[in-house]
Simulated assay, not measured.
Amino acid sequence: MTRPAAAPSSGRPHVFVLDGDSPVPDSLRGAVLALGNFDGVHRGHAELAHVAVAMAAKQGREAAAFTFEPHPRSVFSPEQPVFRLTPPDVKGELLAQAGLKQSFVLPFDRAIAAVSAESFVDDLLLERLGVGGLVCGYDFHFGKGRAGSPEMLQARAGARGVPVTVVPPYSWAGEPVSSTLIRTALEAGDVGRAAEFLGRPWFVRGEIAHGDKRGRDLGYPTANMHLARDCRLKFGIYAVRMKVDGIWRDGVASFGSRPTFDDGAPRLETFLFDFAGDLYGKIVDVALIAWLRGEEKFDSLEALIMQMDKDSARARAILAQTPPFLP
């Protein structure tokens, strides 16, 4: 199957956190739910959204996502947190663009992990949420010891008259799409490959912070961001686009530890072309469009500036041939 990622949907996401005994909104009781972690909200996740929206429309119900935060692997192995492709706020926005404008978020901890698969289906999905239908991927597992499977979900919910659709592996360019595949591409610096399977460029969101101001002296003032501790994007130089006040602007960015200067904590430093303005304190998105080269240590500032000139020229040329990114 090669259906493209779902087209962006209008409207902002509405997220309902299922902590304690918080009431379920009447408008969403009986909704058709797409179940999953949805990290990245890639093409395969968009297919789940498409199926859930179609099932909901057929039944005259609402469609919503059901997901978990934090990622279960971060709970079980906090010393080795999973490389998150999308933080919670971004995930909600991307799910809304895929057609699931409303989401249930179940706070995941060891107590939730100890809930049996039977109780997860009977008490949470069927009783508390009163679901009208369920959609999950072929590899969705849940409940204590991950004992719950798509087949068990079909049998248990089906016995109560609730339809369950299991979506088979979704392939793009001949490969099954997965969050793991996308993480692997980003760890190799292959942001183009990651974008193919995401259905859009991968982007990060963060606040522009004050740096050491070296870029100004070099003729390349940069906007600096500290990315999440779990980010394992390959160190290097990238052609990028930054969303500033709703407008995407072209630029070039370095992600790494600045070996020419201090080998410090990793950060993303972005130079925007033809831009003058104060970005400090702004929350921005930076989309990684193309890999240019690996991080290097230079013997002199002159050699560094010459390479930065080449990087900027190459980034401009690539971005001039790249369609606008307008999520």
Rank of each mutant, 00 (worst) to 15 (best):
R314Q: 15
A147I: 02
G161T: 05
M152N: 02
F142I: 10
C231I: 11
D250V: 01
V244I: 09
G143D: 05
R258Y: 04
V166L: 08
A315Y: 09
F273Q: 01
A223G: 08
S77W: 02
G130T: 12
A34N: 02
G277Y: 04
A188F: 04
A64I: 10
D274R: 06
P4L: 12
D278M: 03
S77M: 06
L218A: 05
R156T: 14
R205K: 12
G264K: 07
S74K: 13
P87K: 11
P163L: 09
K91I: 11
R241I: 01
K297A: 12
Q59F: 09
R249S: 02
G36W: 09
P169E: 09
V41C: 08
I305C: 14
L106H: 06
D263S: 12
F271K: 01
I237G: 00
D245H: 11
G211Y: 03
R61G: 04
V244P: 01
L134W: 11
R316D: 03
R214Y: 06
L227N: 01
F197T: 03
Q307D: 13
L153I: 11
G206T: 06
E127K: 15
P169K: 06
V115M: 15
F255D: 00
L28F: 08
A209K: 13
D19Q: 12
H45S: 05
H50A: 14
A253S: 07
G20Q: 03
D230M: 03
V204A: 14
L106R: 08
V51S: 00
K101A: 12
V115S: 07
L304I: 09
F140R: 05
S103P: 00
R316E: 08
V51C: 03
L125T: 05
Q321H: 15
A54I: 00
L186T: 06
R12C: 10
A96I: 06
A228N: 07
G281C: 05
A315S: 09
L272M: 08
V135C: 07
R84A: 13
L268A: 04
V135A: 07
Y170M: 10
A52G: 01
V32A: 05
R110T: 15
F298V: 05
V286W: 00
G161M: 09
L301Y: 04
A195M: 05
F197Y: 15
L272A: 02
P324C: 09
S254G: 11
H14L: 14
A317Y: 10
R316I: 07
A315Q: 04
L288M: 15
F120G: 02
A320K: 11
T222K: 00
A185C: 14
A6E: 14
R29F: 07
K144T: 12
T2R: 14
P107M: 06
G99Q: 01
T184R: 15
A313V: 12
V244F: 00
A6D: 07
V166S: 06
V240M: 01
I318G: 06
L227I: 03
K101Q: 13
P266R: 11
W202G: 06
P23Y: 00
P150W: 11
A5I: 15
Y238Q: 00
A253H: 03
D26S: 13
N224D: 12
M55G: 00
A173Q: 15
G132D: 10
L35Y: 06
D39H: 08
S119W: 07
D89E: 15
G161L: 10
T165A: 13
F261S: 04
L288C: 06
A65D: 04
L134Y: 12
R160A: 15
F38W: 09
F83Y: 14
L292P: 05
